[in-house]
């Protein structure tokens, strides 16, 4: 189990360091997804499988999809086509692929020794305990989180709507930049 943890930790540190030195946003996103996946593997070794599933579904799924949507909506101009050709070399995906293969080996090893893993995580708090704690003593936190999510929803809706409303005015005033 220690080996699984240390390998996942190494993958997390390497991919996180590579996120902040990338020049291309999409390459950085690949490494960021890898960093979140390795964090999920670490959570499993720390006896939190429920949170690991949430990490994969919400962080590496939903939030990263938001990033990809925004990068697509930004559509950084026509010069990006030439840069894209320059970036899409065969070696570009080698780094994330190697790190992801390390993580996959980690997970396969954990599945192979799964009786020991479940014994290891016997002390850990499963989804049942988390749910009881979440809707027992932390109920006020759940309510506050729901208010926060509502505020985020209203805020992002307002910002997105003001973009759409301002665009025709900009088109009339500025002679149309052609978005």
């Amino acid at each position: 189990m220690e080996g699984v943890f240390y390998m996942a930790a190494a993958v997390a540190v390497i991919s996180t360091a590579l996120v902040i030195v990338q020049m291309n946003v999409v390459h950085a996103l690949l490494y960021l997804i890898l960093s979140l996946l390795s964090a999920a593997v670490i959570f499993v070794t720390l006896g939190a499988p429920f949170v690991a599933a949430l990490e994969v579904i919400i962080y590496a799924g939903a939030i990263m999809i938001l990033f990809v949507f925004v990068i697509m909506m930004l559509n950084l101009g026509t010069q990006s086509a030439g840069m894209e050709r320059q970036w899409m070399r065969a070696g570009m995906w080698a780094g994330p692929a190697v790190l992801a293969l390390l993580l996959l080996a980690d997970v396969i090893y954990m599945l192979a020794v799964s009786p020991r893993v479940s014994g290891y995580a016997a002390k850990a708090a499963g989804p049942r305990e988390v749910g009881i704690a979440l809707f027992g003593p932390y109920l006020i936190g759940v309510e506050l989180a729901s208010v926060l999510l509502l505020a985020g929803l209203v805020g992002s809706f307002h910002l997105g709507r003001s973009v759409r409303q301002r665009l025709p005015e900009e088109g009339e005033a500025g002679g149309g930049e052609g978005d």
Partner: peptide, 22 residues
């Protein structure tokens, strides 16, 4: 439980933040 709260906070933060980026 705290991680779940952080997760909800990160989701709200990133949605507003990306709208501001746009």
């Amino acid at each position: 439980v705290m991680f779940i709260f952080i997760l909800a906070m990160a989701a709200a933060e990133v949605s507003v933040g990306l709208a501001l980026v746009l």
